[in-house]
Design a protein around this nucleic acid. Structure first.
Lengths: 147, 147
DNA sequence: GCTCAACCATTGACTCCCTCAAGTATCGTA
DNA sequence: TACGATACTTGAGGGAGTCAATGGTTGAGC
């Protein structure tokens, strides 16, 4: 519509991408709600496959460290995660899932996979083709630079 | 890892999907921040291509109507949107972009498209292949049922 | 025509998410 | 040992979101 015809399909790709993103978000919220979690708490569980420091976690999330404090406060209150003091540096707290947290993480991962499959019809698609498209997108630039 | 080999690739597809979703979200937040908007305000602009009632908007967003009130309050304060009383039903307020809102919407759409292209390497991909994958996902089930 | 249930939008109370600015404790180094 | 960096926390403040309750409006039945 705007300039030529070179990018004829780009607008559609962008719209499709945003639509898919919206559906994924919807699925994630729905699974989270089922377990009385916020989407952020669910994301915290997903990211804690391996213990990390508060600092490292804030960087992975690209957010302020003080935000992680609050996030972890609430997750700790739910008994999902614990702060373990680092042996070599007493300033550092290592975030680790509790047994309850690990179990919930596993359950949630399964439910997210199943719900996404239903919501997006993943099972009826050619996984290889889908993967190649997704892989191309995520490998384009390693750091999530936005511009 | 879990059961057989039938779903061998599903876990990877899910992970890839969540990774792409995360990157898209990051891009959207970044574009929004550039214009002193929250991601939700940006989404509001995107969705208001055509005027709708508060009620209809809440349904599109799958959220409580009172949330829309707040969202629109802030957008109105920024001069991006206005509430127009409906002629045929005086309970209803129609949401309409102002000229400023329409201009910003257009700018933002371009910026989102450009940033997504950069962040996900869309330009180097085969648009047709990407579109066919995205279309399959969004057409799988019309209503965004999550389960 | 009048009444009453249903409906649209708003308000207030509450929680979570998030950022920024300060503050505390610890580390590493000179 | 003193000092600048680093890791985390705290407090203030605002947006996002839900729920319950309220006011104005509509529409259907009597």
């Amino acid at each position: 519509m705007s300039d030529g015809q070179g990018d004829a399909g780009l607008e559609d790709v962008v719209d499709g991408l945003l639509e898919v993103t919206s559906r994924v978000h919807h699925v994630v919220c729905s699974v989270a709600a089922r377990h009385d979690l916020t989407p952020q708490q669910l994301e915290l569980l997903r990211m804690l496959a391996v213990p990390v420091s508060m600092r490292a976690f804030a960087e992975e999330l690209s957010c302020d460290p003080s935000n992680v404090t609050g996030l972890v406060d609430r997750a700790e209150r739910l008994g999902l995660v614990e702060r373990v003091p680092d042996q070599s540096d007493r300033r550092v707290r290592i975030l680790k899932l509790t047994t309850k947290g690990r179990n919930l993480r596993s359950t949630i991962n399964q439910e997210v996979a199943r719900s996404l499959t239903n919501a997006l019809g993943l099972s009826t698609d050619d996984h290889a083709k889908v993967m190649s498209v997704l892989a191309a997108m995520t490998s384009a630039t390693k750091p999530p630079r936005t511009d």
